[in-house]
Amino acid sequence: MLRVTIDNITIEVEEGTTILNAARKIGGKIVPPAMCYYSKLKGSGGKCRTCLVKVATTSELDPRPLPKLVPSCSTLVQNGMHVQNITSEQVLQERKAIVEFLLINHPLDCPVCDQAGECDLQNLSYEHGLEETRYEEERREFAPVNFGEKIKLHMNRCILCYRCVYAAEQITNERVHGVLYRGDVAEISTFVENFIDNDFSGNIIDVCPVGALTDRTFRFKNRVWFTKAMDAHRDCEKCSGKVVLWMFGDEIYRITGRKDEYGEVEEFICNDCRFENKNVSDWIIEGLRKIKRSSVISQNHYEKLTKQSIIKPIEGKMEQQE
């Protein structure tokens, strides 16, 4: 076991643990935000730089600090390591800058984005963003694209975390999309055809930390904070069948995997479960999904589950914007 101290809290972790996972073991405010790392996707992490932390003491044997901030998601703990996250002014300053970088080419279209309310970038900017942008130049712009019937890509919102690429590669093994071109004009694309379809393709929606990849079947139907999230399962040949139903009244609006407090699904689900079983009778409902109270999704329900919101989705009007 290795001893590591993060923001003055000491914990023992197994060898091979990253700083981020050690911090997640501690939990709470000292956990660095992570936009590209995804524990279930091999090779993910290191790219977004939002989880940068300061290593004040490298290890017991080498008490020197590391010269640069390091990505906590991909830096391994060493015995006797001292890490500063929210206790380092430098880390907070740089994180603010990273958030600003992530936002300069972002359209800031939260009011019309289906991810709003469950968006890691939105949360990150609330916590670390500047109040107003210093960016006055042109933003890159892409037209929205449909990857088949079920998945929509808004490249404008993408932060190039590569999670969907790893997911397609590792879960589906039938990857037809990737990151094409390079630099700030790099884009998620299939290059030909614009069609992603296989049994597990819907998971690229779940792993997307922003509103770049969204569920077309849920598009503009409702706001996540108006829906209630119910854990449910069914017998499924292809996956565990354990899902979250996003319901409004007795209707299922959307089905996703079950996400933990860091936004990662517990188990990947198949497209049959996600897209093809939208009747309540298809599911065995376990009960209300526990959602962090800080999340906007937890608004409107939790107290009285049966009470429905008086606001009804105005579907026709919303569709027109598409």
């Binding site: 712009e141 892409f142 037209a143 694209v145 490249m155 071109y181 390079r182 630099g183 004009v185 884009e187 694309s189 299939t190 290059f191 030909v192 055809e193 614009n194």
Partner: peptide
């Protein structure tokens, strides 16, 4: 590369 940048141009197979 930048000249090839087509803002999601989809290439068709010939």
């Amino acid at each position: 590369m930048s000249e090839n940048y087509n803002k999601h141009k989809i290439y068709e197979r010939n």
